[in-house]
């Protein structure tokens, strides 16, 4: 049973995260065209590799890795806020992103330490962070939808599409994950997290596409 469980977790814990290699390699090939947002996204990819490795190891050793998820949620949100700060040109938006970064980090830390266990899934912060990111992505698309005069950067656009697809699809999972862990069978849980891993892999492939389309003027 243990062996079977391990085989079934190979896809979400090993195969899907290993797709990260693709955008990282393409990003390295295109490193001469990097500007601010590309550097931050590359940092985000390396950060994801690091945390995925830790998550995979802890999963196979059957160690509760929820404390790592709390840290991952905060750092991921901070990195994405910095990425959006590089993407948006409006100063007001850049300021707002810094306020969001600070306030969310404080909220997530306070939530875990004061009202929540460190070893339980952080439903609310993860859900809030994903909803916020979807909101920022929608605002980016709205800005460029309304203003057709702006020459849309293909890298920024593709990156935002990847983030929006992943976070909008998985918001419902993040919001209901604690309930799911309490009520669903292990098989169902694996199925849902496999779906999550697939969408995450799609996001990484979209990032790879964004790097692949990089040109000197972007």
């Amino acid at each position: 049973m243990h062996l079977l469980f391990s085989i079934r977790t190979v896809y979400p814990a090993v195969i899907a995260p290993s797709i990260l290699v693709v955008p990282i390699l393409i990003a390295l090939i295109k490193r001469k065209y990097w500007l601010g947002p590309q550097k931050i996204l590359f940092g985000y990819l390396l950060f994801s590799v690091f945390f995925n490795c830790i998550a995979s190891i802890t999963t196979f050793l059957h160690i509760n890795n929820m404390p790592i998820l709390h840290l991952y949620t905060i750092l991921e949100f901070c990195l994405l806020c910095l990425l959006f700060r590089g993407i948006f040109e409006q100063q007001a938006m850049q300021k707002l992103l810094i306020y969001l970064l600070i306030s969310f980090s404080l909220f997530a830390i306070a939530y875990v330490l004061l009202t929540h266990s460190l070893f339980r899934y952080n439903t609310l912060p993860r859900f809030l962070s994903s909803i916020t990111i979807v909101g920022i992505c929608l605002y980016f698309l709205y800005l460029n939808f309304a203003n057709t005069e702006v020459n849309l950067s293909r890298f920024n656009f593709t990156t935002v599409i990847g983030l929006m697809l992943y976070f909008s699809s998985c918001s419902i999972l993040f919001g209901l994950s604690q309930t799911l862990h309490n009520k669903a069978s292990p098989g169902a849980l694996i199925f849902v997290w496999n779906l999550h891993a697939t969408i995450m892999a799609i996001m990484y492939l979209i990032f790879a596409w964004a790097f692949l389309r990089l040109k000197p003027n972007q």
Binding site: M164, L165, S168, S169, C170, S171, I172, L173, L176, T179, L180, K183, A184, S185, A188, L189, F191, V192, L195, H196, I199
Partner: peptide, 17 residues
């Protein structure tokens, strides 16, 4: 089951997006 709702919700949101 709730997990079916979640799967349907995720798939629908993904396709809509």
């Amino acid at each position: 089951s709730i997990y079916l709702y979640i799967i349907l919700g995720m798939t629908a949101t993904f396709l809509l997006c």
